[in-house]
Amino acid sequence: MAQERTEAATFKGNPITLIGPQLQTGDSAPDFTVSKNLLEEVSLKDYAGKIKLISVVPSLDTGVCDAQTRRFNQEAAGLGEDVVILTISVDLPFAQARWCGAAGVDQVVTLSDYKTRSFGEAYGVLIKEFQLDMRSIFVIDQNDKIAYVEYLSEMTEHPNYEAAIEAVKALR
């Protein structure tokens, strides 16, 4: 049974439970399997040798998640070919594709944790009460070590965009 962290965060001030470990800077990044589309799954090893900024959002169809994904899409151009930005949510892959098309988002890779919640449990961001992934940021170096992590304490708040981008730049 996966570890449960009760009252690890809140949603509009109400406590929520996160399933999985609380990862730290310096930890090895756990592997995961998520859907790129309905037929194709990817894992951490598919991005081997790259710096990975993983932006986790509960759903692209909410205001903060929309803004977070647009912001990292905008930042992507200045980060170089050795960096990949992955946006992970439990939205269905075709909903992610529709949202990206409508939003003009084309620099980040959207991945879905809808099938098994593998990412959510491995990274300690699966919200027990909603079966969504909690807003968080992970920067993983070329050797799959966690260089930066931000678990938000309130689901409706924005992450520290500048700190995440600086963590990516520090790895170059």
Results as ranks from 00 to 15, higher is better:
M1L: 13
M1V: 08
Q3C: 07
Q3F: 09
Q3K: 09
E4K: 15
R5E: 00
T6M: 08
E7P: 02
E7I: 05
A8N: 05
A9C: 06
A9G: 09
A9Y: 03
F11V: 08
N14Y: 08
I16F: 00
T17N: 04
L18S: 06
G20M: 04
G20I: 02
P21M: 05
Q22L: 01
G26W: 01
G26Y: 00
G26E: 04
S28K: 08
S28G: 05
A29Q: 03
A29Y: 00
A29F: 00
D31Q: 02
D31I: 02
T33H: 02
T33Q: 09
K36Q: 08
K36C: 01
L38H: 07
L38K: 09
L39S: 12
L39E: 13
L39V: 08
E40G: 03
V42S: 03
S43M: 05
L44W: 08
L44C: 10
K45H: 06
D46W: 11
Y47N: 01
Y47E: 04
K50Q: 10
I51P: 09
L53R: 03
I54R: 01
V56I: 04
V56A: 00
P58I: 10
D61W: 06
T62D: 08
G63H: 09
V64G: 04
D66Q: 14
D66E: 14
A67E: 14
Q68K: 09
R70F: 00
R70D: 00
R70P: 00
R70N: 03
R71W: 15
R71C: 09
Q74V: 10
Q74K: 15
Q74H: 15
E75S: 14
G78S: 15
G78I: 14
V84K: 11
L86F: 04
I88H: 05
S89V: 10
V90R: 13
D91I: 12
P93G: 12
P93R: 07
P93H: 12
P93Q: 12
F94H: 14
A95D: 10
A97D: 14
R98F: 12
W99D: 14
C100I: 06
C100L: 12
C100Y: 15
A102I: 15
A103N: 15
G104A: 13
G104F: 13
D106V: 05
D106Q: 14
V108W: 11
V109H: 07
V109M: 11
V109A: 11
T110C: 10
L111I: 10
Y114T: 07
K115C: 01
T116V: 03
S118F: 12
F119K: 01
F119D: 03
F119G: 01
G120Y: 01
G120F: 03
A122E: 06
A122V: 04
Y123W: 02
Y123K: 05
G124Y: 00
V125P: 00
V125E: 02
L126D: 03
K128T: 02
E129C: 07
E129R: 09
E129Q: 13
F130I: 03
Q131L: 11
D133P: 01
M134C: 08
I137G: 01
I137T: 07
Q142D: 00
Q142R: 15
Q142C: 02
N143S: 10
I146N: 03
A147W: 02
L152H: 07
E154W: 06
T156V: 15
E157P: 01
E157Q: 13
P159Q: 06
P159D: 05
N160Q: 12
A164V: 10
E166N: 15
E166T: 11
V168C: 11
K169A: 12
K169Q: 15
